[in-house]
Computed example of a mutant assay.
Amino acid sequence: MAQDAVIGIIGGQGWMGRSLGMALLGSGEWRAERLLISSRTGQGEAFRDWPEVRCLNDNQALVDRADVVVLSVRPQDLDAIEVDAHGKLVISLLAMTSLEAIAERMGSRRVVRAMPNAAAELRRAYFPWYAASEVDDDDRWLVQTLLASCGTAREVPEERDLDYLTALSGAGPAYPALLAQALLTHARQAGIDDEIAREAVLETLVGGALLLEREGVDPGEMVERLIAYEGTTAKGLRSMIDGGLEQVVHRGLNEAYRAARGG
């Protein structure tokens, strides 16, 4: 059973390692005594509500005790990780780092690449993942169960898909935040009180996203429907579309995708 596996998170006191660990414990899928974390900062307060969680200062000691190793460090810190996973299942949360690079560094061909986003701490992350051919069905089931504790987990068929989704969903709140910033700046320039402007922008974006999710409609259909009303929103949408908003977004995603592939 997945719940009997000991999960070891290298970088467990960092943002993503902590989010995953807290989600696992909060969901009830794993008992605290079956979670290990290692951290450069040593024992902190990240898991203070679960004192049974063991924090180790030695990554190899964590790997030796764990059944599944989650690698949750910055890509630039990978070279400092010196462990031998002895063929154990390794789940990498690193961007810009291929399966081959992880396998070579960790000493295991049973590698899964996964890409979370910041909504993991709210358990609303989109968590795509890609597995090496050496990862069997039992491993896949365990990976899906583990990652789904943070939100929606989805296996993708190609490693390039994972790189692309690193640029798209891995951005988390970044793209909505950029849109929110533009809307908020305009509202302020129009003389709207700052508190009201912020409230209006956030409620519009959050409410709109929830409405799209609930309705289950294609976003393009929603845009066409709103344009067809021929009201104030239609005027704004037409101006943004004619101004090349879609092309600007595509250029940004292309640049992020290129970086995700190590280009």
Rank of each mutant, 00 (worst) to 15 (best):
A2C: 09
A2V: 15
A2H: 11
D4C: 01
I7V: 15
G8A: 08
I10H: 01
G12V: 03
Q13W: 03
W15F: 14
G17W: 04
G17I: 08
G26S: 13
G28L: 11
W30D: 04
A32Q: 12
E33Y: 06
L35S: 04
L35R: 06
L36R: 11
I37D: 04
I37V: 01
Q43G: 02
Q43K: 14
F47N: 03
F47R: 02
F47S: 07
R48P: 10
A61E: 08
L62N: 04
D64G: 04
D64K: 03
D64Q: 12
R65S: 15
A66W: 04
D67S: 09
V68A: 03
L71P: 05
R74H: 13
P75E: 09
Q76L: 11
L78Y: 13
L78T: 13
L78H: 10
A80V: 05
I81A: 11
I81Q: 09
E82P: 04
H86W: 02
K88L: 06
K88I: 08
L89T: 09
V90N: 07
V90M: 06
V90G: 05
I91H: 10
I91C: 08
L93Y: 03
A95F: 02
M96V: 14
S98I: 07
L99G: 01
A101N: 12
I102N: 04
A103R: 10
A103E: 10
M106F: 12
M106N: 06
M106W: 06
G107K: 05
R109D: 15
R110P: 01
M115E: 13
P116E: 00
A119F: 08
A120K: 05
R124S: 11
Y126S: 14
F127A: 00
F127R: 05
W129D: 00
A131D: 03
A132F: 00
S133C: 02
V135E: 02
V135T: 07
D139H: 13
L142F: 09
L142H: 00
V143A: 03
T145S: 11
G151P: 00
T152M: 03
A153V: 13
P157V: 12
R160V: 06
R160N: 03
D161Y: 09
D163F: 03
L165T: 03
A167D: 09
A167S: 14
A167C: 08
L168R: 02
P173D: 02
P176L: 10
A177I: 06
A177K: 00
L178A: 06
Q181N: 08
A182E: 04
H186D: 15
R188K: 13
I192W: 05
E195L: 13
A197H: 07
E199Y: 10
V201I: 07
E203M: 11
L205Q: 10
G207W: 09
G208V: 01
L211F: 15
E215M: 12
D218M: 01
P219H: 12
E221L: 01
V223R: 07
I227Q: 08
I227F: 07
A228T: 11
A228F: 05
A228Q: 11
Y229G: 09
Y229L: 13
E230H: 04
E230W: 02
K235W: 14
L237V: 15
M240T: 07
I241P: 06
G243F: 07
H250D: 15
N254C: 13
E255M: 11
A259Y: 06
A260G: 08
R261M: 15
G262K: 07
